[in-house]
Computed example of a mutant assay.
Amino acid sequence: MPKIKAEKKSRVHNEVAKQGIMFNKSFGQHILKNPLIITSMLDKSALRSTDVVLEIGPGTGNMTVKILERVKKVIACEIDPRLVAELQKRVQGTPFQPKLQIMVGDVLKTELPFFDICVANIPYQISSPLVFKLLLHRPFFRCAVLMFQREFAHRLVAKPGDKLYCRLSINTQLLARVDLLMKVGKNNFRPPPKVESSVVRIEPKNPPPPINFKEWDGLTRIAFVRKNKTLAAAFKQTATLITLDKNYKVHCSVNNIEIPADFDIKAKVENILVKLNLDQKRARTMDIDDFMQALHGFNSEGIHFS
């Protein structure tokens, strides 16, 4: 038995060694090796020959080369200099070379240029911040077809009342239409990750909802800290009340509003929630309209979240 295990392990090592690269776990490097899945992702992106495509984490370029066949330009953002060298080697002396621009560095810290479509097998540990970096990027892009850990993908599309419904779900759905496209098993990667994956299509809402996203994010952060509790309970947290009190006093001073000597932020927040009929609502069952109503109700009374 141990012999079979050892043989299997050495086969995996030979596979990776053939490529000349040991993958870096801290970067979440799992190279998508199945060409059928790559083709399917590109088909679902509806690429046009005039498109500029952003690819995040191109790895050794299996997907990059396929995209280059179909579009005007690919901007590949890669953090690992060894993989950058591999990618450059792969296109050198081919007609693809002038169509490929490589940005070396951490995509979360990089100012992204204009692009029409984003296609990527995302390193899973940057999934959430990356989704919002893309959705708040301007000018708007047409859509993104992205591979995520399966549970994360299900959170993106979860509806009020679903077990996985969370702040990520509602914040994403405020800014975009999200669809699950397909499941991808772990054996389609080298090395295989510990979890299954899914591909998601994200299409930004253009124009975006007429809402200050920082304010919205601040409100949903409070509501979803304990998503099964009522809003009345969520807003009783001492740290929350201290922040809202400070924000209210700034609002009053900027607008020359006098604050009564007996002002009590806790009572004010409770009154607003009761007036809006939201005090007994729970974040896990609230939809976008409920949160819009809450945000408008609080803002109109001078209570701000950012």
Rank of each mutant, 00 (worst) to 15 (best):
Q88H: 00
Q29Y: 04
L54E: 05
M63F: 04
W216Y: 13
M292I: 15
K8Q: 08
K194D: 14
S198D: 10
L32S: 09
D245G: 03
T238S: 15
R150C: 11
A6H: 07
M182T: 08
V274M: 09
V53E: 04
A120M: 10
L295R: 08
P123W: 10
S127V: 09
G302T: 05
D116E: 12
C118R: 08
Q88A: 05
M292N: 13
I79H: 02
K236Y: 01
A267R: 13
H154G: 04
N171C: 09
R138Y: 11
E203A: 12
G20V: 03
G28S: 13
I37F: 13
C143N: 15
Q97G: 02
K44E: 07
E78W: 05
D290I: 09
A223F: 06
G20K: 04
S300Q: 12
T64W: 01
M182Y: 08
Q293E: 10
G93C: 05
L83S: 04
E203Y: 00
H137D: 02
V84R: 10
L36T: 10
P160M: 13
D51E: 06
V74R: 01
T64Y: 04
M103Y: 00
M147E: 04
C143A: 15
F141P: 03
P209G: 13
L278Y: 00
Q19G: 07
V74N: 02
R138M: 13
M286D: 07
D264F: 02
I67S: 01
F115I: 13
K3Q: 06
E7T: 12
K25T: 12
P95D: 04
Q280E: 12
R201C: 14
F235W: 09
G57M: 07
K99W: 00
M147S: 09
V157H: 09
K186L: 11
D287K: 15
I37M: 08
